[in-house]
């Protein structure tokens, strides 16, 4: 079973993915609206998995929604909340319901979220989850038992191109590829020169790289990310540009900046595609794509 996202990756076209966050609760209207708006415009959409350790409707449920609505889901799976039995079981369920793209993440600490006293599991890590997927595909589980019907996945992972120090992250990046990652969605990138030097290194590996682009919504938001999110560095000129936007025009400026960056990455063929993170403003993804001269 080759997913349409896998086909898009193999086609060599410039890939566009975005994020959809399942709701806090069972009111699925906004999520359904975002899926409906984006399903024919992007190659696939990521369903976040209790992002930032905040308990929400599960990524598996969101991925099923996307599938049922005719879109292409990328199921995000973290290792924070499930042991190896639960992770493998959810992978089998996903495959049985036509969900064939998985993004493997270690997951944030529960201490960063809204259930700080919960037990963080981390029975596996992101590279071991990737390896588990490849084992399931061969008809076995992690206990070396035979499966009755084996799944198939297009598996991916993440990397932080601006991590400090960088080399330990790159060693992990290489292990993820060794474990079976076919695509990489990066942490948010704002400095294209630094990203180009990362790509010069990353090009040697047989993996598709989708650059992470976060929509800036205000100068304080950019400063907040610089202070609080590891590996995210919004350069001062971009913060100044956001600060100088006319009153009420910050979002428009953010869309312009994101569009400009994506367009440069696309036209200069810096990497294989873009992963747009509009964090709660998914309805603006088409505007960002338009600003980047990307047609669905």
């Amino acid at each position: 079973m080759i997913s349409s996202f896998q086909k898009a990756l193999d086609s060599g076209k410039f890939i566009v993915t975005c994020e959809v966050a399942p709701p806090k609760g069972i009111n699925l209207e906004k999520t359904a609206h975002h899926i409906d708006l984006l399903k024919d415009k992007v190659d696939a959409m990521n369903l976040t998995d209790h992002q930032s350790s905040v308990m929400r409707y599960p990524s598996l449920g969101g991925a099923l929604m996307v599938k049922e609505m005719g879109g292409e889901p990328i199921l995000q799976m973290t290792c924070r909340d499930r042991n190896r039995l639960a992770l493998q079981g959810d992978l089998l369920f996903a495959a049985s319901r036509g969900i064939h793209n998985v993004l493997c993440l270690t997951g944030d600490s529960v201490m960063l979220g809204d259930h700080k006293k919960a037990k963080g599991v981390f029975d596996l890590d992101s590279s071991q989850l990737l390896a588990a997927i490849r084992i399931l595909e061969k008809g076995k589980d992690l206990g070396d038992n035979e499966l009755d019907g084996s799944p198939a996945f297009c598996a991916g992972a993440i990397v932080t191109p601006e991590a400090k120090p960088l080399e330990p992250q790159l060693i992990k990046f290489e292990k993820k590829i060794e474990a079976g990652a076919e695509f990489i969605q990066t942490q948010a990138v704002f400095d294209l020169d630094k990203f180009k030097s990362f790509m010069e290194y990353a090009r040697q590996f047989p993996v598709k790289i989708l650059v992470g682009i976060i929509l800036l919504t205000s100068a304080p938001m950019a400063r907040f990310m610089n202070k609080n999110i590891a590996g995210v560095n919004v350069p001062q000129p971009l913060i100044d540009e956001m600060a100088q936007a006319p009153k009420g025009g910050a979002i428009v400026k953010g869309i312009e900046i994101a569009g400009r960056m994506i367009k440069a990455i696309h036209t200069e063929k810096i990497c294989d595609g873009v992963h747009i993170m509009a964090i709660g403003k998914e309805e603006l993804v088409p505007d960002i794509m338009a600003a980047a001269d990307l047609t669905p």
Binding site: T106, S109, F122, I158, K164, Q169, K172, A230
Partner: peptide
């Protein structure tokens, strides 16, 4: 390692310090 990881750092590490 806060998460007990055995394959290298998570993405939350920053300037040699832990995300928590």
């Amino acid at each position: 390692c806060h998460k007990g990881l055995v394959n290298g750092p998570c993405g939350g590490t920053n300037q040699g310090k832990c995300e928590i």
